[in-house]
Amino acid sequence: MGSVILWIPFIITSGIENCCSRQPPWFNGLELLEDAKQNKHVLPSGCEGIDILLEGGFRIGQLTEIVGPSSSGKTQMCLRSALGVADMNLGSVFFLDTCNSFSSNRIASMINQHTATSVEEDGETRVKRIMSRILCQSVYDIFELLDILRQLENRLSYQEKSNGNSIRLLIIDSIATLVAPILGSKNSQGRMLTISTGILLKRIANDYNLSVLVTNQMVGGQRGHLKPALGESWKSIPHVQLLLSRDKGSTICGISILKHTTIGSGRTGKFVIHN
């Protein structure tokens, strides 16, 4: 435990110095408007009900958080989103798996249920095309996540210069698995590291025109009411926060908007998942 406490200030200090040395240029309103028109579009969620609710899907340049209790459909939603983006040739998907939730077999099964983008493409070719665009890496702690994200920044910067087929969707399932342990301490360094991670994710989303999708569990709060696991330190980080719910044994999931940059909170919708 002592080694963790010694490393945290170093990483936070390095991150702050790095941010200061990479201060972005100022943009006027016209430049921001042009960037929004050209780059800040939406990515399909892979579920029609969600896309209708979100007026198109997940916004590029933003961090979306999916909150929900166990078995509410969070991972299924992530897998469907990865499939949707890869199938429509919108770019690659980078799936960071923190709790062994990624299943290539489940995605392959979903492909057979998902409407094909080309009637001329046979099933085997389609599976290969989609799966080759979904990159997956296991992550076991917050420090490993930060290292991977910095490597990702370097990769995205290179792809941007070479006009390569860039990553358009970054998924972390689940962010709470990595962050919750460092928030359990009374030491404020855990909260600082949590905020630094969130800021880094938002910067990557904005600078490289991709959408970040993370999942978060629910835990017991006051009077037994469930609340997002990451608490107040994380609350202000996501641009969009969605709450999932599902009755036991049902294939129909409920989704409601807790927070959104352009859509009023409280709107609800439904979508179907296949086990």
Rank of each mutant, 00 (worst) to 15 (best):
G2R: 03
S3A: 12
F10I: 14
I12C: 10
C19H: 06
C20L: 15
S21W: 01
W26N: 10
N28H: 11
L30Q: 14
E34V: 05
A36W: 07
Q38C: 12
H41E: 06
S45Q: 02
E48Q: 12
L53D: 02
I60D: 08
T64Y: 05
V67Q: 04
S72R: 00
T75I: 00
L83F: 04
D87V: 02
S104W: 02
S104L: 08
N112A: 11
Q113M: 15
H114A: 08
A116E: 15
T117Q: 11
T117N: 10
S118H: 09
D122F: 13
T125G: 02
R129N: 09
I130C: 01
I134D: 03
L135H: 13
C136Y: 07
D141E: 13
D141S: 07
F143M: 12
E144F: 00
L145T: 11
L145M: 12
I148T: 14
L149H: 10
N154I: 00
Y158E: 14
S162F: 08
S162R: 13
N165F: 11
S166L: 07
L169R: 01
L170W: 00
I171H: 03
D173E: 12
S174H: 01
L178D: 02
L183H: 07
L183N: 09
L183T: 04
G184E: 10
S185I: 05
K186V: 06
G190T: 06
I195F: 02
G198W: 05
N206M: 07
N206R: 06
V212W: 04
V214G: 01
V214Y: 01
N216C: 13
G220M: 12
G224E: 13
K227H: 10
L230K: 03
L230Y: 05
K235W: 10
S236L: 15
L242R: 00
R246F: 09
R246K: 14
K248D: 15
I255N: 02
S256N: 05
I257C: 07
K259Y: 03
I263S: 04
R267S: 14
K270A: 09
N275S: 12
